[in-house]
């Protein structure tokens, strides 16, 4: 593996870790000392050089290892990538968006050469070279959605738009916060979000849907979501819950700093041109508590957020049982000093 990418695992011996550079650019999701749901969408425009917002689709040091993990998840359970038949066109839209973005943003790693519909794609980190006919799925080893998302970090769902609603009808979901693509595929926006507590009553989904129905091509938006994960396990799926659930019960004050991770999702939304569908990339970033507390402001703030979160939300996010353990650990880094507004370290 090249020097650009870590040789690490997200299962078994869990050798995943963030370099100092990765910690520095980690998307800490709390702009203030408390947390409640909000729609909080902003334009997905390029950010500072080196930040996770620098490019449309961030490729970081975990890329190759994440793709290896995804291949293993799919080998174990092919149902993690599905596309209802009418969503193939949206799959081609997504393939084009990702290939063009990566070839433009990371020319030393990715190349796309087009001669009409004859396309030539080179992915150097994964050692893939593919000649294929755009819009002809028989010239690729997988459907367009699966082909390109086996080479792109983050989960992806594709939403068809009709009848003033968004329908989740295709996706690649192997790094999820405990929801099942296989069960949810085919659902409307509100059906798919039905199990989320509180947010529905707050009108969050009404506002978000109304906004997304008007999302325009060329004007993507982004927001953050977050949860907690014990051990750097990407695949926290309901399918495998009996396999990873017990890990929550074996954490101790001695191991929590190493085993407990904050899991942040950078969610972006893009209108796709041919299909009029919306793609929803959900990019997961993991950071272990002992990495996170190296930034004093983040340590103070995370302590306060976890302390004040309603139990209903902690239950939904799956960390209620370890909340006391987390607070004991984080409290030692909270000296009560005020924190500055915004995400950035002081």
């Amino acid at each position: 593996m090249s020097l650009d990418f870590n040789d690490e695992t997200f299962r078994g011996d869990y050798t995943f870790k963030n370099s100092a550079k990765a910690i520095k650019r980690f998307p800490f999701p709390f702009p203030e000392d408390s947390y409640m749901y909000s729609v909080n969408m902003e334009p997905h425009v390029p950010g500072p050089v080196g930040s996770i917002f620098e490019h449309m689709f961030d490729v970081d040091e975990h890329y190759v290892a994440e793709m290896r993990d995804r291949a293993q998840v799919l080998a174990d359970d092919p149902l993690r990538c599905q596309s209802l038949p009418h969503m193939e066109l949206a799959g081609w839209d997504l393939l084009e968006l990702i290939m063009e973005s990566k070839a433009r943003d990371y020319p030393h790693w990715f190349e796309l050469h087009k001669d009409g519909n004859n396309w030539h794609w080179i992915n150097k980190p994964l050692q893939i070279e593919q000649r294929f006919t755009f819009m002809d799925a028989s010239t690729l080893p997988y459907g367009p959605l699966e082909y390109i998302t086996r080479q792109t970090q983050g989960d992806f769902t594709l939403q068809d738009q009709r009848d003033d609603d968004l329908w989740i009808e295709a996706g690649m979901v192997t790094t999820q916060a405990d929801w099942s693509l296989d069960f949810d595929i085919g659902m409307s926006f509100k059906q798919w979000h039905a199990p989320v507590p509180l947010a529905g009553q707050m009108g969050i989904f009404d506002r978000a849907l109304k906004f997304l129905l008007k999302l325009q091509h060329g004007a993507p938006v982004r927001r953050f979501n977050w949860t907690m994960t014990v051990d750097p396990l990407l695949d926290t799926s309901p399918e495998n819950y009996p396999k990873w659930g017990p890990s929550k019960t074996t954490m101790t004050p001695e191991t929590i700093g190493h085993r407990q991770h904050l899991r942040v999702e950078l969610q972006t939304l893009h209108r796709l041109p041919r299909s009029n569908a919306i793609v929803f990339p959900i990019r997961c970033y993991l950071i272990r508590f002992e990495e996170l507390v190296t930034v004093p402001k983040w340590a103070r703030r995370l302590h306060r957020v976890v302390r004040d979160i309603p139990d209903e939300l902690a239950t939904y996010k799956g960390f209620l049982r370890n909340k006391p353990l987390m607070l004991d650990y984080l409290a030692q880094f909270d000296d009560g000093q005020p924190t500055s507004l915004g995400f950035a370290p002081d």
Partner: peptide, 8 residues
């Protein structure tokens, strides 16, 4: 929240 895409 703005839906403004660049004009052509």
């Amino acid at each position: 929240m703005s839906v403004g895409a660049p004009k052509i």
